[in-house]
Structures are given as C-alpha cells and as structure tokens.
Amino acid sequence: MALLRLDAVRWRDVLRDISLAWPRGRLIGLVGPNGAGKSTLLRVAAGVWRPTAGVVTIAGMPLHRLSPRQRARHLAYMPQQLPEEAPYTVRQYVAMGRYAYGTRWTGYERGNMGREAVDAALRRMGLEGKGDVPINRLSGGERQRAVLARCLTQGSPVLLLDEPIASLDLHYQVDVLKQLRALAAEGYLVVIAIHHLELAARYCDEVVLLHGGRVTGSGLPAAVLTEAAVREAFGIHVRTYKDPFTGALRLSLP
C-alpha cells in the first residue's frame, strides 16, 4: 500500500494534474530543469502548501485534515539550506525536530523521550561528539548530517528533502546519498529533489522527471532518463550508456 499518495494534485499553474504513489522503503529522486516544480511538489507533498485541487494522503489520511503538529509526526520536510547565521548548537538544532511532541503550553516535551531521540539521531548520523558545537562551525557536509538528524528526531516514516546535496563536495554528496539509501533500507520513504542526474540514477530506487509542472516520467532511472526524455526536459542531446563498473545509467554530454 502506498504510504504517501498524490491524487490529481494541482497547485496554481505550477503543478498540473500530478498523481504519484510511493510505498515505504524507497529513495525517490525528483529531477527536472529549474522551474519544473520540484520544490513546489515537495512543499505540497509536505502539506506546507495546500493543493489548489486534488488531495495528498499519508497512510490513507488527507494531509490537510491534520494539524501542523500531527503532520510533522507523519512526515519531516526540509527546505533547501539552513541560514548561515543560525546561532544554535547542533544539539539545540536537532532537538527542534521534537517540537511536534511538545506540550501545547510550553512547546517543550515532557520526560526523557526527546533527549533519547536526539541522542539516537546524533549517533545515527555520526555526530555524537559534536552536540555542543555551534551549527555554523560545522563543515557543509556535517551540517547536512545535522539536518538529517533533525529530520530523524521527528520519528516520521517519510522524509522530504529539497536538494540535500546541493553545494556539497563530491565526498559529502556520496556520503549523504549513502546515508539516505541506508535510511530507505530501514523502511523510510525518502523523497529528494536532486539536480545531478547521474547521482540520482546511481543511488535512487526510482526517479520522477518533472517538466513544466507535469510528471513526464516515473519509475526506474534507466527507464525514465532516456535520451529522448532528457532532450525534451533539458534541451540537451545526451547519449546514455551503462557504467562498466556499477551498471548504473550514465550520460555522455555533447
């Protein structure tokens, strides 16, 4: 059964008639040119923006019926990057993911659950020694790990991340994608917007190609990112081939 489902979703004239359904345990890559609607799709799927038409359901429940806190317990959404001047320590930042479990009046959680969830998330992301470091002292890659840790503390089965590997170097791009794969293997549904087609093809279980606010392809990377589809979406004449070592889809640029 699909965990997250979009039925005939429209958002103003940015998204048109989008129907998608994803089960648990997948890493999904949203690809497409700038302005194709990747970020908008993530916002709508996260319930931050309400669709103009159509409905988004999580585990069978329409998203717009949930309160912001209930929603945050079902899916974690991370917009592009953290602001540079964030004055908090890694631990303070990661603990913000527990807001959805706080009491109505103080906003803070009772008991030790929150602390344990934060410790577990820091450990999971290899940041256990960095809890007291100000978050803006971390390197770009570590910071992205902190962002993932914050998402994990929400205890939600769905992670929606907008360009999690933009502005990272190759080492951390691969590092973050491997982390995301591992999370998908544990049963999370992870949906990311990603510009790098070859990395998407190498690490994602499925890709969704967006062009002009419509889904023009969805499925296995090799089936979606065909020469014709890439030419139509990006206007670039590529040749595709199989990577001789990994068997993944590769693109030869003109």
């Binding site: 912001p68 959404y77 930042y93 913000m96 807001y99």
Partner: peptide, 24 residues
C-alpha cells in the same frame, strides 16, 4: 511570550523550516 518561546526559536531559522517540524 514564554508559551511561544520554543516556536520562536524554531521560527528564527526560517518559516519553511518551522513548518517542516510542525510550527504554525
């Protein structure tokens, strides 16, 4: 103010971030 303290902390990182963790 004190009842909004945690939400304000989160909000200081940006509105979309805040919505992602359940702040209204």
């Amino acid at each position: 103010y004190e009842s909004q303290a945690h939400a304000l902390d989160i909000l200081s990182l940006g509105e979309e971030q805040a919505e992602g963790v359940g702040v209204n």
